[in-house]
Design a protein around this nucleic acid. Structure first.
Lengths: 344, 344
DNA sequence: TTGAAAGCGCTAACAC
DNA sequence: GTGTTAGCGCTTTCAA
């Protein structure tokens, strides 16, 4: 069993023949220290490979240098790409990430917030999936918060996302441009304000402006391959044949494609299908999927940037400076691949 | 700007008319406290919604209740499923996860270890991708470590993975059983001891025992769709037609399928293809992919269990009790789907 | 420019 | 059972 006690600032001070206050000063560059002393102390720190205890520092400073992340599901590629962006941005700073998952459960979300508060995180990034996150929910978290992917009812919390409404509208307009008139949608739950509701409204608006909208051709799924498959089956069993389908995410789109293939349709010759997200599978599928690409990693990066700003300027509050942008919409892009074509 | 100073153990002590030591005792149940006092203190804690500062506690105990994770890439579904398992297991305990990614860079791995040590993590889970992780690499980390997915040269560190050799052998034997004789492989780099080398050796062994092995039908790829595609193209350009292909992961398998389709082959009628991992895409692809399923989440769970054991029994050392199992191989499963069939 | 000392919020001997 | 006290390792007044 190894013993090797951790070396502390006191040893350094002693070895250097100075007070620990001075050592602290050279570590943090917080106050002027004579060149000579500085050199000596630095030398000893180097020799002993001393690393100041962050726990102790945090206690003294009442900081943790920890950023808490709350995410519905870690194994979902959409979320893990966001995390990936967050991680890469955090790594540049001297903060660390502490991650918790909610499994889409509201109670777990609340509990995780409690835990993260106890851990003393300096800030919170909430990757949200629904509109549960109402105002009072945040009122007693006196720490900076940024939301990602969902709009809080309370507009005082900065949000990072894309313009889901416009993106869905663009995707639908592409189908219209390709000559489709009978267009269906497999949407997400409306309680999901962004991926669910906003995308649905964008779709609706695009069709309504051409007087093509018909609610009966809209089905709901919970973002899985299987839900997409099932919804497509129902859509295809209608008397009027649908030739274009917009899906609220790629997984449902792929499920829809598979369903169509199983039913004997050719994609895209018989039916054009558009997804949303541009996760890996979109590019790799056969046929590859036309979809809306959104910059997940970048959303993570932007969220971190905003959060760090808030932490620096106002560490003990979840309200923001007036100069902080509340709504940060990043650009999306429609990517045309093999799953769409001009109608015959 | 909110002020609301954080309430401390002192306030509780004062309000309850006891010493803070007593409060500490009721919080931690560490020493007997009279029922009456306990009740009173608990009541006040409840009323004031007091949460003890973990930072302070950690400093006093020289613990952090933090588990560090080092992972090559957060957005890779394989890794994120492992993380997901780790997270769910950690959540049951009072530890938290602190996650860092290496982007497959050795230097970043080293740096992350440094950072995690400074953060004072109580233990480390290393999700590894290569054999760089030699003995001395760990020697100066006096904290429990568990490795996941790779075998350290030093056998003193517990490892969690599956028997990649046997799994690859089984998959190859399936192809043989289906009547294939001309079988190729798209393998990973051999420097990757598990997914690369072990899977290759299992493949080789299965074929050699039937005198079917031919090195010329083995290609290397770096686990991506594109690498699979490219390798398949070369494999298919050989004079002797290959009818079965085993790929070291699902992404390369899907790339291979796509390549075959583009070249006019039918899968599985003309060529049977097997992948490895059983990530989501395997089930969703058209044709769906026959593959080796491994319990990623469970691997994460097991790793956490072992690590927590080590932390409890020997928190300041990376050596393990003799009773700790060094090699923890979890079961794998071959899942037959549409990408394989009996040879014509 | 430097040192002494107080304090961050908690735990753990040690006394009573 | 309970209180007193001395840390845990660092930062930061305040004096010198």
């Amino acid at each position: 069993m190894e013993r090797k006690m951790k070396i502390t600032i006191n040893e350094i001070a002693e070895k250097a023949g100075v007070s620990k206050a001075t050592v602290s000063r050279v570590i943090n560059n917080s106050k002027p220290v004579s060149e000579e002393v500085k050199k000596r102390v630095l030398g000893i720190i180097e020799d002993t490979n001393f690393k100041p205890s962050l726990v102790a520092r945090n206690l003294a400073l009442n900081k943790s240098h920890l950023i808490g992340i709350i995410i519905p599901d870690l194994s979902n590629p959409v979320f893990s790409r966001i995390i990936s962006g967050i991680e890469s941005a955090i790594r540049e700073s001297d903060y660390s990430l502490i991650i918790t998952a909610t499994d889409f459960k509201f109670e777990k979300k609340c509990k995780n917030i409690e835990i993260l508060k106890e851990k003393g995180v300096d800030g919170l990034i909430l990757i949200s999936d629904d509109e549960n996150d109402s105002i009072d929910f945040f009122k007693n978290i006196h720490k900076p918060i940024v939301m990602l992917g969902s709009n809080p009812v309370d507009s005082s919390i900065p949000v990072v996302n894309i313009d889901n409404f416009s993106a869905a509208k663009c995707a639908t307009e592409l189908l219209i441009r390709l000559g489709h008139r009978q267009i269906g949608m497999i949407r997400g739950p409306l309680s999901d304000t962004q991926s669910g509701k906003a995308r649905y409204l964008g779709f609706k608006q695009a069709l309504e402006s051409k007087e093509l909208f018909n609610e009966e051709f809209v089905y709901e799924g919970r973002y899985s391959f299987e839900h997409g498959y099932k919804a497509m089956k129902e859509l295809m069993s209608k008397e009027i044949p649908t030739t274009g389908v917009f899906c609220a995410n790629d997984l449902m789109a792929v499920g829809a494609i598979r369903c169509a293939i199983d039913m004997g349709y050719k994609i895209p010759e018989d039916i054009s299908i558009i997804g949303f997200d541009d996760v890996d599978i979109a590019r790799m599928y056969t046929p590859s999927l036309t979809t809306v690409s959104q910059p997940f990693e970048q959303q993570g990066v932007v969220a971190v940037k905003i959060l760090l700003d808030m932490i620096i300027s106002n560490p003990n509050s979840n309200t923001v400076k007036d100069t902080t942008k509340k709504l940060n919409e990043l650009p999306f892009r429609i990517i045309q691949r093999e799953s769409t074509c001009k109608i015959k």
